[in-house]
Simulated assay, not measured.
Amino acid sequence: MTDISAQDTGREAGMGDYFALLKPRVMSLVIFTALVGLLVAPVPVHPYIGFVGILCIAVGAGASGALNMWWDADIDVKMKRTAKRPIPSGRVAPEEALAIGLTLSVFSVVLLALATNFVAAGLLAFTIFFYAVVYSMWLKRSTPQNIVIGGAAGAFPPMVGWAVATGSVSVESALMFALIFMWTPPHFWALALFVKSDYGNAGVPMLTVTHGRRVTRNHILGYTLALVPVALGIAFTSIGGPIYLAVAVVMNAWFLKGAVALWKRDDAASEADNHAVEKRVFRISLYYLFAHFSALLAETALAPWGLGGW
């Protein structure tokens, strides 16, 4: 990490700047998948305990974001996509972000342990450590497989939510983890295909930078093919059912179609239409994850009326 001092931007940091440190867009996905993990678990949770559990997971995700922004401030300032973040823009000092990240990390883990159980708290602690240390400090700048391995950090929330309810890990929670883990590489590589210069300028060894777009397209197709059986397999567990299966078939066919379209492309075609297909596949990937977890939630919600589950 290169030391970056806050620059004078003409105004003091506001609450919005400190909130931005927590990566609210990423946090929203974490909250949603963790909530689904909690609600589809076979053990009912008191609403207050469930609220505290999700709050702790959200705060832990925010803590990870703050630590990531603290560490990555030197490369964020070099990328158009991240240059306006609170630290590189000079609105928040790096040491402030570090203090916020560490404080929220301890708070979220300790409170989760006291309010729920040590399994959930341990998983949350490991998630924060994995994202802040294993991914941000080690993998991101050292290997083009950064997204593949580092994607585990974003895959833990539904497992943590499940543990809040059950105090354990199960096949179902492991499959929800696997769904996000396998989805992450094609999701981020689709993004990297049309922001390649950003990563190259910052010296981040994204696959598009180290091996080129052709290899990246091959990897996107390969991981999408590997993702399909994981997604469909969840349909035949205790949290799946016909609703989820129908959604999974449609979404996987759509995502796979997009991956094949990307695989057939070359750089000339991509540049000619301003990466239209790449951007479309990236958007599909966002719908993909939301649809799968929404379908799991629907299965659980409709089960009391005999409309969900097998």
Rank of each mutant, 00 (worst) to 15 (best):
H292D: 04
L114S: 12
L286P: 05
P44V: 09
A174H: 00
A261T: 10
F130L: 05
L98G: 00
G308Y: 06
W189I: 04
P94Y: 10
R91E: 07
Y48T: 09
I180W: 13
L124T: 12
A153C: 11
A83G: 10
P242T: 07
Y48Q: 08
A132N: 13
D8F: 03
L179F: 15
D3Y: 10
F107M: 11
W138K: 11
P88Q: 07
V110Y: 13
V260L: 00
N201K: 15
S136D: 10
L67K: 10
K279T: 05
F282M: 09
A253S: 09
D76M: 05
F236D: 03
L245H: 06
S105Y: 10
V215L: 14
Q145H: 10
N68E: 07
F255Y: 15
G101H: 04
N117S: 06
A115L: 08
L225K: 01
G53R: 11
M137K: 14
T210H: 07
V247N: 00
P44L: 04
K257C: 00
N146W: 10
R280F: 02
A248L: 12
A97I: 07
F32Q: 09
S285I: 04
A261G: 02
K279C: 09
Q145P: 00
F194H: 15
F32P: 05
L256G: 03
A231E: 02
V230T: 02
T184P: 06
P157I: 11
I128N: 12
W70S: 04
I234P: 00
L124A: 08
C56P: 09
A58D: 07
H219L: 13
M27H: 00
H211T: 09
F126L: 14
T216K: 12
A295W: 08
R81Q: 13
F118A: 12
F129S: 08
S5H: 11
V277L: 13
A132Y: 13
L227M: 13
G212W: 15
P158V: 12
Y244R: 02
K84H: 12
L307K: 06
A202L: 13
S285R: 08
V119M: 12
V109W: 05
D267I: 15
S142W: 00
L139K: 05
L67C: 00
W254M: 02
A231W: 01
A298F: 14
T143F: 06
L256H: 04
W305K: 06
P86A: 06
A61F: 03
T224M: 07
S168L: 13
F19T: 06
V30A: 03
Y199Q: 11
L22Y: 01
L21P: 06
V195K: 14
P158R: 02
A178S: 14
N117C: 08
A235V: 02
M159A: 14
S108N: 05
G306L: 06
M15E: 08
F255A: 03
Y18Q: 05
L221G: 00
E172N: 03
L102M: 09
L245P: 10
S294C: 07
F194S: 13
L112H: 04
V36T: 14
E96Q: 14
V30C: 04
P229Q: 03
P186R: 05
L111A: 11
V148S: 01
G16C: 10
S136G: 04
H46F: 11
L256D: 02
Y288W: 15
